[in-house]
Write a protein that binds this DNA or RNA. Structure first.
Lengths: 113, 113
DNA sequence: ACCGACAAGTAGCCTAGCTACGTATGAAGG
DNA sequence: CCTTCATACGTAGCTAGGCTACTTGTCGGT
């Protein structure tokens, strides 16, 4: 999948991933990849700055820890983050419904086997 | 709706609108607004450059005409444009399914009154 | 005479994701 | 022992593409 399609929706994805529990950056990347069956394979240059943005915005808080001699920065959703997620989710549904109205109907229902 | 969410999906929208028949720029803007119940109200500074892009890419062709003393540039889908639309549609469905997997499930079905 | 709808367009800005780097540790393999 | 790969963090600079703000022009109504 073209990653740049994400424009404007990445924050929502990150918040959604963190909704299930705190994770560190690298694990977030893996979670996105896993839960999307590999179609979302985002580079660190995308994720790390995005997490900083979310932290600056107060939607997540981070804390350092060392696991197996490796430094980890773990991110956790704040209340503000949870509220933001709700808003983003709402926004996503409106957006996808609207675009779907233009692109949806004509898709062949399925190309069965 | 936040318009910047469109990033990367505008071309598909334009092709989809033109799929139903040739239109001139201004009419395209109105069609988008009408078919989205007003939630897609895009400025000319977004539409006109995008149409030029599509024309450069060979997905549409334009022709000038004068109606009531007003110059109109009417855009029409090419075969290449139709193929591109099919691809974009496919891409949209993958994209929305993937993002939906993260943002979809938890939306309250409705907040009744 | 003037204003609003119709109709087209451009220059320059800004957001935000991507490319391509750089750093460092631990485990595995030769 | 040394290399390589997975883990883990990060940044600088590029770029795409939609937006703001503006310009030009006709026509119809007041």
């Amino acid at each position: 999948m073209k990653a740049q399609s994400l424009h404007g929706h990445l924050d929502a994805l990150l918040l959604a991933v963190l909704e299930r529990g705190a994770l560190h950056g690298y694990a977030i990347i893996e979670a996105l990849r896993a839960r999307s069956d590999g179609s979302l394979d985002l580079p660190t240059g995308t994720i790390y700055p995005a997490l900083r943005r979310l932290e600056r915005a107060g939607h997540v808080v981070s804390s350092w820890s060392t696991v197996n001699g490796r430094e980890r920065r773990t991110y956790e959703l704040t209340d503000s983050g949870r509220r933001a997620l709700a808003v983003q989710r709402q926004g996503w549904h409106e957006f996808s419904a609207t675009v779907g109205r233009f692109l949806g109907p004509d898709t062949p229902p399925a190309t069965p086997v």
